[in-house]
């Protein structure tokens, strides 16, 4: 965990320090050569873009490669899984696992790869364009893209939780009394996607607590950690963007802070998308493990 934090800070913090220093230098240059104000503004903008876009697109790439890996895993094990379900016969009726759900989860992964992540990249591009040339603004379009994405993703997660609770065999282990304040805290303090995070955590939690009877808590914890690590990384980076924006707001251009803020927002939405992917991963992994357990128990 600590090493992950260090790696996030190491890659992102250096570029943000460049942003802070260069926006301060621009202040000095503006004071010394007021006639070149327009030029310094554009130069600052390009410096900030070259420095700041790289970590954001690295995260987009990372989530994308993860989705591709997961869909490959799924395609390779799905025939095996269906065959084993047929072979194991009645033992599956007592569980709340629908093979259709597996297909659904991985359909969501494909959706994330082909639609959601390109849309996010487009949102970043629109933000940059509307800041670079404010008279031709695309800010409404970028906002709309983000909210649409968030809508799609939360609808999918809601569908997951309906699927999972439909059978009625599974209940969330953390009872409402203990978890409600924590959920409230998260949903109010993480901007934009806070309530979404608590909801999807609830959905995942409901699922895995039902599965823990068969699998064992430590394995579930491992799968959770592996699946949620990219999400946490993205969330941290998004927060760092907004922190930098807040830090340089008193002395930097409004455009620079705006761009940083917008990229931070986009990364939050990316974090929501990666939740979807993580959920698909958790479902597939647990499904496989439970199946193997059941088959070995029957034999």
């Amino acid at each position: 965990m600590i090493s992950m934090l260090e790696s996030v800070l190491g890659t992102v913090l250096s570029s943000f320090i460049v942003v802070i220093i260069s926006s301060f230098m621009v202040l000095v240059v503006d004071f010394l050569f007021p006639a070149f104000k327009k030029w310094t503004r554009i130069f600052l903008f390009f410096i900030v873009l070259t420095v700041v876009l790289q970590p954001a697109f690295e995260h987009l790439e990372m989530i994308r490669s993860i989705t591709q890996t997961i869909s490959t895993i799924f395609i390779s094990i799905y025939p095996l899984l269906t065959a084993s379900i047929i072979a194991s016969g009645g033992s599956f009726t007592m569980l709340n696992f629908q093979p259709a759900m597996l297909l659904f989860a991985n359909g969501a992964v494909l959706l994330a790869d082909k639609v959601l992540i390109p849309m996010l990249a487009a949102a970043i591009l629109f933000d940059i364009i509307s800041r670079l040339f404010p008279s031709v603004s695309f800010s409404k379009m970028a906002d709309l893209l983000r909210t649409t994405l968030l809508g799609i993703v939360s609808a999918l997660v809601a569908a997951y939780s309906i699927f999972i609770t439909a059978g009625g065999t599974i209940s969330w282990a953390l009872s409402g009394v203990t978890s409600e304040p924590i959920k409230e805290l998260i949903s109010q303090n993480i901007p934009i996607i806070g309530s979404f995070i608590t909801d999807s955590m609830g959905a995942i939690g409901r699922y895995s607590s039902g599965a823990s009877v068969f699998v064992g808590a430590w394995l579930i914890m491992t799968i959770w950690t592996v699946a949620l690590l990219p999400t946490i990384k993205t969330l941290l980076t998004g927060f760092l963007y907004r922190w930098t924006a807040a830090l340089i707001e008193p002395f930097a251009n409004e455009e620079i802070t705006g761009v940083l803020d917008d990229i931070g927002k986009t990364l939050f939405v990316l974090c929501a998308v990666s939740f979807l992917v993580a959920f698909a991963f958790i479902y597939t992994a647990l499904f496989t493990v439970i199946l193997i357990k059941l088959i070995t128990a029957v034999k």
């Binding site: 327009k38 554009i42 487009a122 364009i129 040339f133």
Partner: peptide
Amino acid sequence: FLTGVLLLTVMSTILTL
């Protein structure tokens, strides 16, 4: 579409400079 929008913006930024 995106490439066209980006090119228009970048070129007009340079022109306004």
